[in-house]
Simulated assay, not measured.
Amino acid sequence: MPTKINNLNVESQEVLITPSDLHKEMPLTLAARHTVETGRETIRNILDRKDHRIFVVIGPCSIHDVDAALDYAKRLKRLSEQVSDTVYLVMRVYFEKPRTTVGWKGLINDPYMDDSFKIQDGLHIGRKLLLDLAEMGIPTSTEALDPISPQYLQDLISWSAIGARTTESQTHREMASGLSCAVGFKNGTDGGLDVAVNALKSVSSPHSFLGINGEGQVSIIKTKGNGYGHVVLRGGNGKPNYDSVSIAQCEATLDKAKLAPNIMVDCSHANSNKDASLQPLVAANVVNQILEGNQSIVGLMIESHINFGNQNIPSDLSQLKYGVSVTDACIDWQTTEKMILDMHDKLKDILPNRN
């Protein structure tokens, strides 16, 4: 009997719903479409300096509780209306979490947080939440981690991130070149800018690569290139890179590479020394740089939830604390509100006169 040589380490394979069938089951409504189109256009206009505002990608490190996410969104909507003349708020709706070794990989991979990996359910739950948020008028952002999932969800996303672990990946650069929204590339985990700069050059160019189409068929995807890539500074190797010297060095690097001087600062990760409570200090420093004449900072990223900190996932999920992150620690809503209102008050008379 012939020895088996294929799929030796594969336990099973399950056919998923196709992207087009999921879209048919959960179609984009007119209200949702308007939110997505407006969100994408607003961010493009900010990057093109046609809109004087800054945009802030803010919300939970990851989504694990849909009810808490909707609660957060309602608060964010009210806050957004208060600051909309100066700060454009985009909600973080991160469904996929990169892992260095093992751990919970996010709502799409494991929606029930019990290692059952009901990915089909995760896609439905994730798309339903994005639809609900878009119908509320809330633009959303996510990390484009899995190269397949954008076919299922990207029609509801206004801004995407490529994380520090994947900025160097050719697969993710190619994928991002075909995304319909602006994309922020984080600097490498070592804090270096080279991988992000190379990614920005790559993403703006056309690519051809293997992917899937709406019918779930393996296809050759040919892209036009995405002209709205930009860098996200998140620090690295335990060192921050949001200070004015680091910003100036980034500006010089972008200029040398003949790239647009668009810089976004991630207030979390190494920029806050992985201490969520320091995020407001990072944001305040960035705001002061703008007050002092900085022209290149166009956005910030903040990890925020209803309640402060983070928690481990308990074996008894009924013991989960409401509105507390299960991945990176977040600031609470009270701190979030104060931070954004302070940002608005300091910048409202400055940004309209920014060159």
Score class of each variant (00 low, 15 high):
R78S: 14
I54K: 01
V87D: 03
A329S: 15
G103T: 03
G214W: 04
E174A: 14
K24H: 13
P60E: 05
A164I: 08
H269G: 05
A31R: 13
R99H: 09
E135I: 12
V231M: 06
S304P: 01
W333Y: 10
H207R: 08
E174P: 07
R44W: 02
L341D: 06
C267K: 03
R49Q: 12
N355V: 13
R354H: 10
Q154G: 04
K97N: 08
I263A: 02
I297K: 01
V90T: 07
I313R: 03
T223V: 07
A68W: 00
M264C: 14
P60T: 06
Y72P: 01
K348G: 09
K97F: 02
K239G: 01
N353W: 11
Y152I: 11
D85Q: 11
N310M: 06
I119E: 07
E168A: 13
M26F: 12
S177F: 05
N294G: 05
M301T: 05
V298L: 11
T171D: 08
N273H: 15
E14T: 15
I290N: 05
D155A: 10
M136Y: 12
A182T: 09
E135N: 15
G106K: 00
Q279E: 09
C267E: 03
D342F: 07
R127H: 12
V183N: 06
V83L: 10
E37L: 13
L153K: 04
L193H: 00
S169K: 07
I263M: 05
L16M: 15
S268F: 00
Q334V: 14
D21L: 13
M26E: 06
S296C: 11
Q289E: 12
R234C: 00
R127W: 09
C181L: 07
M175S: 04
R40W: 02
T38H: 11
C61F: 01
N237C: 04
Q170N: 10
D342T: 12
K274C: 05
